[in-house]
């Protein structure tokens, strides 16, 4: 596709097509006649019957479709992109984030910020990590760019709160240490592809 289409900023000369329609009613009488014609039709009673049938089935056969939210919730797609989760290493329990800052850089809403420092073990340590959920557009780039699969999208879609900051503290997003065993590799954005094993190459190290 050539870029000429995007470079044409001369929006004044586009070909508009007029839609054909009936003549508009002119007098008061004609307008009233149109209201009646649109309102009273046989289909009205078809609709009323559908409602009544569902009501009868619900009342007497127990065939009800309403989900009693928030007491019950429907399962959501694994690829749904809601509030982020920060994962831990299964072996050591240490958080996976290495503080590389790629999520901070790629974020198109500019809502991720992190503070890092030089720690006692002469390694890079993440001291503070926030996502501004007032700005986040849940695009999933951060999860996709993360080289450590440390940040992923979770299933927490209930994001109404008095303060959006409530969701953005690093420790809140991090898998609780006692729930480490339940931590699942996320199948959605940023996850290892199903055929990842096939793509692994032998390292060239000869020893």
């Amino acid at each position: 596709m050539s870029l000429n289409k995007f470079k044409d900023r001369n929006v004044g000369v586009q070909n508009y097509t007029l839609i054909e329609h009936e003549a508009f009613p002119q007098t008061g009488g004609e307008k009233f006649a149109r209201v009646l014609k649109r309102t009273i039709k046989g289909e009205l009673f078809v609709g009323l019957w559908v409602t009544m049938r569902t009501m009868i089935l619900a009342l007497f056969n127990g065939e009800i479709h309403t989900v009693k939210y928030p007491f019950e919730k429907l399962p959501i797609s694994p690829r749904y992109r809601a509030i982020h989760d920060m994962l831990r290493l299964l072996e050591s329990g240490h958080y996976r984030c290495i503080g590389c800052g790629l999520c901070e850089k790629i974020c198109i809403a500019d809502c991720i910020k992190m503070d890092t420092k030089y720690d006692e073990n002469q390694r890079k340590e993440v001291t503070e990590y926030t996502i501004n959920f007032g700005r986040c557009i849940f695009c999933g780039y951060c999860a996709e760019v993360c080289p450590e699969l440390a940040i992923v999208h979770g299933g927490r879609y209930e994001t109404a709160s008095q303060q959006r900051a409530s969701f953005s503290i690093f420790d809140d997003m991090l898998t609780p240490i006692d729930a480490l065993k339940e931590q699942k590799e996320y199948p959605g954005f940023g996850a290892v592809s199903p055929n990842a094993d096939d793509n692994i190459k032998k390292t060239p190290l000869a020893y």
């Binding site: 503080g99 890092t116 340590e125």
Partner: peptide, 12 residues
Amino acid sequence: DTSFKYTSNAWE
């Protein structure tokens, strides 16, 4: 520089 080490990425 030790004082700068691991505090920020250059592009920020």
